[in-house]
């Protein structure tokens, strides 16, 4: 537990000092969402109906944006090898890095989402569900993404490849995230979709770090 906190603290400190990463992700999120009213037209009905989908797809892309930096910086300067040599299990290292990644990118997205939801005229009934789905969904995205980021370490054109690997696996989160918000907006219970989102998080929490650690191990071989 101590070691986990140590890894998270290290990554957070690095993110804070190098700055810009979480600011960039949120800026991308806001700018891309703002593009939609220009593309679709300012009609309130249309924006309201598409708001859940637009917010989720954009949040998904934004959280993917910073993924390739997750292990790459440490891999390139050699500190990943040093971290792997410490007695800390590699799986724990991955969990720590994912937690730091989520705190620096997922959390800002969750903070920004309701503001953007207002801009897109989302029905006020959907706000709480939007926050809930993001809270359950973005950690899953970071976990799956960490697996992809570990797999493409050292690959040619890693960034493009990463999106090809990770986006298909993101689809279930997107479907149930949007489904829950749509249900809530229509006044239907969203419990089933939220439970499924939670289930995906619970399944990804042990499995994704395991796979990511396996991928890291042979990247360091």
């Amino acid at each position: 537990m101590n070691r986990l906190a140590e890894i998270i603290r290290r990554d957070l400190r690095l993110a804070l000092r190098q700055g810009s990463d979480s600011v960039m992700v949120v800026t991308f999120f806001v700018l891309t969402v703002v593009l939609f009213p220009f593309g679709l037209g300012p009609e309130a009905n249309l924006l309201e109906r598409t708001s859940a989908g637009v917010l989720w797809v954009t949040a998904l892309l934004a959280s993917m944006l910073s993924l390739d930096r997750l292990f790459l910086a440490d891999y390139e300067d050699g500190s990943l090898e040093l971290l792997a040599l410490t007695p800390t299990a590699l799986e724990l290292l991955v969990i720590g890095k994912v937690a730091a990644h989520w705190l620096t990118t997922g959390l800002p997205l969750i903070v920004a989402a309701p503001v953007l939801a207002v801009l897109l005229h989302m029905n006020a009934d959907g706000f709480a569900t939007l926050l809930f789905t993001m809270l359950l969904g973005t950690p899953t995205l970071s976990l799956i993404g960490a697996m992809g980021a570990a797999l493409v370490l050292g690959a040619r054109r890693g960034g493009v490849l990463l999106s090809l690997l990770v986006l298909p696996l993101y689809v279930p989160v997107l479907i149930f995230g949007v489904g829950a918000i749509d249900a809530a907006v229509q006044g239907l219970p969203a419990k089933a979709q939220l439970l499924l989102l939670g289930g995906m998080l619970v399944a990804a929490l042990p499995l994704a770090p395991w796979a990511a650690a396996a991928a890291l191990r042979q990247a360091l071989e």
Binding site: M147, V152, G154, L169, L207, A211, A215
Partner: peptide, 26 residues
Amino acid sequence: GHMALLNAFDDPTRGTKAAGILALAG
């Protein structure tokens, strides 16, 4: 994705292993 990952590395064994993990995850 599997095919792309297989051919993405200069060292083919690395591609094989990475693609193997992806195949299992998928």
